[in-house]
Design a protein around this nucleic acid. Structure first.
Length: 231
DNA sequence: CCAGACGTTGTT
DNA sequence: GTCTGG
DNA sequence: CCAGACGTTGTT
DNA sequence: GTCTGG
């Protein structure tokens, strides 16, 4: 993500900006801060959250952070259901990486909207008070669903990307019935996204470089790998 | 009753 | 905090 | 997700 | 192989 808060506010109907700009990142890792849009006291607000949801009842931040929540179970899981009912958010992104599994090898791919617009990942958030520092940490998880046809060859899952017409309902805190918003958690149609192979530089989170998202040219996936998805 | 988990991904 | 397993 | 570690001693 | 850190 390399957009300023004003741009994000304009794209997502944000009424109040509650954060300064984050450093551009081409390699967002779990525990990093990410921009997020949520409703607060009836106002749509842009702020930052830590990626990796810590439920309010956790007694330490140790252990693997909950970076994803499955769309199929998010409404029921104890670690997620309160957040799903009352604390939904969107996490803006220019794109995301996926690593081919099994037949697709270790090749990383960068996925964007086909029209290069910003993505709105469906997320949930929670507040947790760190007992050591006594400070509140607001954190989030990104909801995943089955991969669409464009990504199925390289991966079984993908983040839920909300189309603009669903943002109002998703962010409405007064909508508390799970079934009212569960229907929004579908894979984005394949023709809306573009998927390109990129350098393995991205494999190391210390490589936070613009080159991470540069499509490899003349380096198609190995034979037996996924079909070329370049437009 | 208390103790312990509470999640996803991917997997030769 | 809330649920499950023992 | 991937990369990188994977240990003990002694410690207010 | 499995866990932690980023």
């Amino acid at each position: 993500m390399n957009e300023d808060p004003e741009t994000l506010a304009r794209c997502f109907g944000v009424e109040r900006i509650s954060t300064g700009p984050l450093e551009p990142s081409y390699n967002v890792a779990p525990t990093d801060e990410v921009y997020a849009v949520a409703e607060h006291e009836g106002v749509r607000r842009l702020g930052v959250l830590r990626w990796g949801l810590i439920p309010h009842w956790a007694d330490s931040r140790k252990g693997r952070p909950n970076i994803n929540a499955r769309a199929e179970t998010v409404a029921e899981r104890p670690a997620f259901r309160d957040s799903f009912r009352r604390r939904r958010c969107i996490v803006p992104a220019s794109g995301f990486y996926e690593w081919g599994s099994a037949a697709a090898g270790r090749q990383p791919y960068y996925i964007t909207m086909a029209d290069r617009s910003l993505m709105a990942f469906a997320g949930i958030w929670a507040s947790w008070k760190d007992p050591e520092t006594r400070r509140w940490i607001r954190s989030c998880a990104i909801i995943t669903t089955r991969a669409n046809e464009a990504l199925a060859a390289i991966h079984t899952r993908m983040p839920v990307i909300l189309p603009p017409q669903h943002l109002d309902l998703w962010l409405d805190r007064d909508v508390r019935a799970p079934e009212a918003v569960e229907t929004l958690l579908a894979p984005l149609p394949a023709d809306r996204i573009a998927c390109r192979p990129v350098s393995t530089l991205v494999n190391n989170v210390r490589n936070n470089l613009p080159e991470n998202i540069t499509p490899l040219t003349g380096a198609l996936p190995a034979a037996g790998g996924p079909p070329s998805l370049l437009p």
